[in-house]
Design a protein around this nucleic acid. Sequence first.
DNA 1: CGGACAAGCTGA
DNA 2: CAGCTTGTCCGG
Length: 566
Amino acid sequence: MADLKRTALIAQVLPDIRAIDKVFDYVVPESMAPEVRVGTMVRIRLAGRRVGGWVVGLSDTSAAGERKLEPIAKVTGWGPPADLIDLAGWAAWRWAGRRSTFLATASPPGAVRGLPPGRPSPAPQPGGLSVVRMPPATDPYDLVAETAGRGPTLVLAPSADQAVRLAVRLRGDGQAVALASRDWARAAAGGVTVVGSRAAAWAPLPDLSAVVALDVHDEAYTEERTPSWNGWRVAAERARRAGVPCLLTSPCPPIELQDVETVALSRTEERAGWPVVDVVDRRRDDPRTGLYSERLVQRLRSGGRTVCVLNRKGRAKLLACAACGALARCERCGAAVEQTEEGLRCRQCLLVRPVLCAACGSQKLKTLRAGVTRVREELEALAGVPVAEITGDTKEPVPEAPVVVGTEAVLHRVPAPVDTVAFLDFDQELLAPRFRATEQALALIVRAARLVGGRSGGGRVLIQTRLPKHEVVEAALHADPARIWPVERERRAALRFPPYAALAVVSGDAAPAFVAALPGTVDALGPDDGRWLVRAPSTKPLCDALAATPRPSGGRLRIEVDPVRL
DNA sequence: CGGACAAGCTGA
DNA sequence: CAGCTTGTCCGG
């Protein structure tokens, strides 16, 4: 006699709770069976309370043994498709995170009960990873439009507003486009190109035909919170798994991509896409001219719109007594003091004291290292025109002043076009104690180049430096970003930094126990300020080691794989 | 995460 | 030894 009792369908559910990275089995009631697929979002009872979760697997047997299983309480709606459930598993390994973090990013912003009709799409053409080196002033739109024209493409841009602009242009050209994550259901239905920023790497796209990620040198692709995943790397892995082409564009591709097949324009075309660079060698200048070379003053007075960049906020970051020459330091801890509205403030312990020399009592101090606020006052006097100030903290809209001075934020805030961008103290960028300083410095010039445009438009980038032969300066001057690589390769190899090693920073109160339990395949350096640097020869052994090490229960543990800075 | 339960600390 | 805090474990 046939067994009348049909085997029940069992769903493996990953709860949407940060701290739980474990799947639980639930019975799928027959009424729900048609709606439950891998990726479906459900509500379940777990330890007595109702929580959300994702179906990450379906089977007809349970690992829970003889125990009677709870049924799924409710089907919430559509969730990340099966390929993204797998990708979340990979990302959890790659960035030492939890699957739920990635699935949350891959999920729709609200419950999706049904999908609109999808559109048919052509069969994708196979392809691999390539880098397109596209100079700053070249518009990548044609590349995007052409790729999207061949089939549903995942298009990533570093910022949300660039993504919106791209989506609008593509739509204007009659292409079917979904903007992540707003148009989640339309993307999930298929047949459309999806455009978005970092998180769009997790957008549903059932019939992916290609990936394009613009400006992959941009650090905005890296999530600041842990897990510190990177959008273009996720998208590239997706393309790899789907066997479709992945195009990464950048005027200055990161050194990690040095071995990837690269498409570059001809020398003439690439040069045309970079602005004229004025290198102002300040080695012979009178130190009393401070941050203002003769050539800078000429540009300021020339009447064009000028943006000056100085990555130091405030009035003065380093002062000395004008009378006796002593450095102004904190009387409590000895650290350098900076000038603020209230007086001299210690940069370490924040103790405030009046503006006078601790050594001789003189009230006359001179600025050794000026900040943006002071520079604004001085530029106004020098140029004889109104000068506005912008830093990361500035909330107001960008003022109309002919000259604007600010920290790096000014390059994000001031709209193009601008006639000149001047880096007042570029050595600060070149010599920054960060292992990516060279690439970051070149990326700053790229930002500046976007504001002034290519060389035919007459835009100029003025670089004040005492290192006029530095490879970054040469790269910008010759519009040849690969010039930074030979030096950078040697430096990175000697110091065992990426791409010649893979790094992770481990911190938090559970860090000591975690680091102690790491296998011998990785080295751990530290602690330095409560942080350990974990290093392996490459990504795989690093991530394998991090994944194989149990996380101490209780206590916070922060693991930042591929740290942007150390 | 949050509840359950166990092991340690305090107080009369 | 009750009553409470603190820590560890585990959920289907």
